[in-house]
Design a protein around this nucleic acid. Structure first.
Lengths: 258, 258
DNA sequence: CCAAAAGTGTTGCTAATACACCCATGT
DNA sequence: ACATGGGTGTATTAGCAACACTTTTGG
């Protein structure tokens, strides 16, 4: 079985190829149907869900490693990635031992002193992707890979819930200084969609009219002639980001708080 | 010589005691004489300056390791510490080799494959301290330890200039959400001092009157009856932070940008 | 008594809030 | 025709920026 071979390979040669004691965990944010979502996976023989993660090759840049891991998982490259925190509690080792249990359940032998069971300090990244461009698919080590609404998450392994929470907090803080809208929405989107995105991230309602005025006031959007028809009410305009102006505005930081 | 013994010890036993490939670098900010300063040291037999740094014991929490390193360096505990970024370029290894040169200059043998010459991913922390409470003193490995004005830094080893720059940027971003004033100033301070601190961090002038109104508007300061005399002009009032209200206000984030 | 630097006050503008009305679309 | 949701407009208010005058201190 291909999966078994991959796992054996990781167990046997991981220590040689990867930096020890160091891992990466990615919170992949997507936006769909008015919900902010995170891409989670479930390792084989585990009941809890986990963040996509991986290790860093000995000569690999940390940020590039995160890119690679994301590419392997979503098929996307050129992903917007941001490291937001290091999780370095020594208690993470206790949790890692739990992980060992379900690797053994797969029948693959795992030595008690395997590098995989050691202590890992993990660098937390968040990624922003266009939901519609990703087709979640489990890899060799997992049997499920799905989007979950950020506000109704399943049970997560280890400290992944904390990582997710901190990622959302970072996202909130950086809403006015990073091109968050651009990376989470498709090329063309409507104003109500953009507003809903903001509402999900901030977790509070915003006034429709004031939101529109403020966003348009930044001068970072281009309005298309087309509208989005087919929903039993007035068709909203489609917008796109004017990347040049967007990045210019972000350098200053968009004004005010939400 | 004590210093030699310490260094030999680090070279020989470091690999056993510390997590490999992982280090911590601290940007220690202080404020004095109207200047924002960083505490730098110079390793023996080196001409370039460096950030205080260290390694993480195998069972030690990363944040606690940073605290320990800071304590060893400044004698202070309970320091305000904030991790702000991971520096993980594989090119850091080239620089590390330079470091090897001046270790060898000290006459201590250093094997080519020593763990100290390997690749290090470093977690960047910034620390905020009360300048007057620190007496900089070189340790066993360094022959100088001094404060430098953030805006006239000496040549720094490796990528430490970048780390310093990123730390300042982080400080700027968090000015309204972290108790930065509290940790950089002495117990009692004057309004002009606080303003100068803000100006140093933001690197721009602020209007004296508007600054005062805004800060006082937050309701986070207590004004003392005493004033600070002896400077050939009107004596400014002394203030202290009302910690309760300060932290309460920070949770919301102080309004607006600067 | 004068220079330097601090305390205090006023005004106007900009931008965020809180509203109401009209328009397009599918059923 | 009507319910739903989107586009546009206006009054009010809060906060920031710009600016002037007075007060205290040491030399």
């Amino acid at each position: 079985m291909r999966a078994d071979r991959e796992l054996k390979n990781l167990i046997q040669k991981g220590q040689r190829d990867f930096l020890s004691n160091l891992s990466i965990d990615c919170v992949i944010f997507g936006f769909h149907a008015g919900q902010l979502k995170a891409l989670l996976l479930r390792y084989k023989h585990s009941r809890e869900w986990a963040l996509p993660g991986g290790f860093i090759y000995k000569k690999e840049d940390v940020n590039q490693a995160a890119n690679r891991i994301l590419r392997e998982r979503t098929g996307l490259s050129e992903i917007f990635l941001q490291q937001f925190r290091v999780f370095g509690s020594p208690r993470r080792i206790d949790h890692a031992r739990e992980m060992g249990k379900f690797i053994r359940r797969s029948g693959i032998p795992l030595a008690k002193n395997s590098w995989l069971l050691g202590r890992f300090i993990t660098v937390g990244f968040y990624a922003l992707v266009d939901f519609s461009a990703v087709s979640p698919a489990p890899d060799h080590f997992s049997d499920a890979c799905e989007w979950y609404d950020m506000h109704s998450l399943p049970a997560l392994m280890m400290d992944h819930t904390e990582i997710l929470t901190k990622a959302l907090a970072a996202l909130r803080l950086q809403l006015n200084s990073q091109p968050i809208g651009y990376n989470l929405l498709p090329e063309k989107f409507t104003m109500p969609e953009l507003q809903k995105l903001y509402e999900c991230i901030l977790y509070k309602r915003l006034d429709r009219r004031n939101f529109q005025r403020r966003i348009l006031g930044y001068g970072i959007l281009r309005r298309h002639k087309e509208t989005k028809k087919g929903m039993g009410h007035k068709a909203p305009y489609l917008y796109s980001f004017d990347l040049r102006k967007y990045h210019l505005a972000l350098q200053e930081g968009l004004t005010g708080g939400w």
